[in-house]
């Protein structure tokens, strides 16, 4: 149990990103299901993903997934290697550093087509 601080923040962010990703996933499975109805319907549905507003949400989704993955790894390390719990705060900052190192280039790659 965390009582405030970085640990509490990492926990809340993990839950918010997790719920957000599942909400998206429900919609995404539904839109992929449409591929079974042929090209007209599916291509029409895919056009929604090309709207600029949705492309910004796409970058937000990538951020949520990346954070959830990295912090999930942090949770697993701490749970199976008790000594690591003393470093949970340091590992939260490590998650932040790795997150930025991967997210910034990914976000630039994803958003760049909007400006062409």
């Amino acid at each position: 149990m965390y009582r405030g601080g970085e640990g509490q923040l990492s926990f809340i962010l993990h839950r918010i990103t997790g719920v957000g990703i599942l909400v998206f996933l429900f919609g995404h499975v539904a839109d992929t299901f449409l591929v079974g109805f042929g090209p007209d319907l599916y291509n029409h549905a895919m056009a929604i993903y090309r709207l600029p507003v949705i492309r910004v949400l796409e970058v937000l989704l990538a951020a949520a997934v990346l954070y959830h993955a990295l912090n999930g790894l942090r949770i697993i390390i701490i749970d199976f290697w008790p000594a690591a719990s003393r470093y949970q705060r340091a590992m939260f900052y490590a998650v932040g550093v790795v997150f930025l190192a991967l997210f910034i280039p990914a976000a630039i790659t994803m958003i760049r087509p909007l400006f062409h």
């Binding site: 599916y42 291509n43 895919m46 090309r50 790659t109 994803m110």
Partner: peptide
Amino acid sequence: IGHMVIMHIINNVDVIDYDFV
């Protein structure tokens, strides 16, 4: 991560359509 690198980094939503799937 594999799915997202393939769909959002190597490819992107401009090229993902029926023929792609």
